[in-house]
């Protein structure tokens, strides 16, 4: 078997295996972490990995097909990865009393304000641009 057919086979297998693609995504994350450590960047490694993958996709060195299934698999159950972090509340008993209720109220009211102002701003600007570009918003 020539090296070309080996590469073609490997590409074929990669395009159809979600677990392998998750491995590829993890590889890019590790690369991001490595770069962050090496240069002492004040950024999370995942963000650097994301920028690397975007750059490779944009320069067409990597195709979305070689990561799409793996990425979907990771994103579909991303909420699960947050669950253990929530339990940190157990270590902060001081948050369980009145202070906790106050903080909860601040967070709830502030978050609703952020969501409504953001959505309205984007929606308005979107329509304004659509109207001024001469096409109707959809």
């Amino acid at each position: 078997m020539s090296s070309r057919t080996v590469t073609a086979r490997a590409t074929h297998v990669l395009r159809h295996s979600a677990p392998l693609q998750v491995g590829v995504v993890i590889g890019f994350w590790l690369a991001g972490e490595g770069i962050v450590r090496l240069f002492g960047l004040p950024l999370p490694g995942g963000i650097v990995g994301l920028v690397i993958v975007l750059a490779l996709l944009a320069s067409r060195r990597v195709r979305t097909r070689s990561m799409r299934r793996g990425a979907q698999w990771l994103l579909a159950d991303m909420l699960l990865f947050f669950v253990p972090a929530v339990l940190a509340v157990l270590d902060h008993q001081e948050l369980l009393g009145l202070t906790g209720l106050k903080i909860l109220a601040v967070i709830l009211v502030s978050t609703v304000s952020v969501m409504i102002t953001t959505a309205f701003t984007v929606d308005r600007c979107y329509r304004w641009r659509a109207d001024h570009a001469g096409s109707a918003p959809h």
Partner: peptide, 22 residues
């Protein structure tokens, strides 16, 4: 026992490259 799950948030961040690019 579950820190490895939280660590997967890193690869999940990288995974956003696909929908963002698309």
């Amino acid at each position: 026992g579950t820190h490895w799950l939280v660590l997967l948030l890193g690869p999940a961040t990288v995974a956003f490259a696909i929908p963002i690019y698309e």
